[in-house]
Simulated assay, not measured.
Amino acid sequence: MPKDAIPTIGPAHVAIIMDGNGRWAQKRGRPRLFGHHAGARRVREIVEACPDMGVKYLTIFAFSTENWKRTQVEVAGLMSLFRKYIEREAKALVRNGVRVRFIGDRIRLDEKLVAMMDELELLTSHNDLIHLTIALNYGGRDEVTRAAKRLALEIEQGRLTHDEVDAETLSRFLDTHVLPDPDLVIRTSGEARISNFLLWQSAYAEYEFVDTLWPDFSRTEFARVLASYGKRDRRFGAVSA
């Protein structure tokens, strides 16, 4: 077992808001896209660390519904980066037992990227070592709104009654309906906000806000955060014995 592995019981599902790519690049006098490319390389290291850390599910926030407000140059560069990431990493993801899923609204994404996303999901569908979920054009409020619309349609068409609607029912219409809720949400770069990420699913998650910019978030720091999580008392509204 590597020295930075976590031998104790840690979170099975970790979600990460990968923040700080642009600032990382600007500190080095480089364009923001340089930082996004560095951040993409960091994803591979963290994904590969997950089995040793006891993490079965990893969900990463790649592009939010609000990120369309950025410059056209940055948005176009990010979309190109997502395509290159899929091309470059597909074989390694299959080989390493990673199952990939994408969540978010695909309507605004270009057809080529969506086709590549579909293909990667299919290629990795038999894997079960790590479940990597990539939130792309994702927003928590948007997800709940889309789920509510699908739920309303079920009621309208007579497949559900309003009396059958509860939290569990609504959860079945979320993008993450096949995933467990996250145990731990990490945000890098020193910002202490959740930015519309997994709002429903993170109701009882633990949060860790770290100062490190995402391209510098190493396997060692990942292990430290997971070790800190292991010391927390998760009561889910109950009282400790």
Rank of each mutant, 00 (worst) to 15 (best):
G10Y: 06
Y204R: 09
I103H: 04
G237R: 12
G190N: 02
Y57N: 02
T133E: 02
P7N: 08
L184T: 04
E121G: 00
C50R: 09
A115R: 12
L179I: 05
A203Y: 08
E111F: 03
D211S: 12
Y204Q: 08
K56H: 11
I186L: 11
V73N: 13
F61V: 02
E191K: 00
G190M: 02
T71N: 01
M1N: 04
G20K: 01
I16R: 00
A192S: 07
L226F: 11
V210P: 01
A147M: 07
S189Q: 03
G190L: 02
A76V: 08
A15G: 10
G35D: 07
V114A: 08
E89K: 10
V14C: 02
D142H: 06
H131L: 01
G35F: 09
S80E: 13
R187K: 05
G97M: 05
I46M: 10
D110H: 10
H162L: 15
V185A: 06
H126S: 13
N196H: 02
R28C: 07
A15S: 11
R41C: 06
L184V: 01
D175P: 00
N96Q: 11
L33M: 15
G104S: 04
R32C: 03
S171T: 13
L58Y: 05
M18V: 11
A167N: 08
K69A: 09
V47E: 02
F63K: 07
G140C: 08
S202Y: 11
G35T: 07
V185C: 12
L122T: 06
G237T: 05
I194L: 15
F222M: 10
F82Q: 14
R159A: 12
R172G: 12
T145D: 02
I155C: 07
K91H: 13
E168L: 04
I16N: 01
A40R: 04
T71I: 06
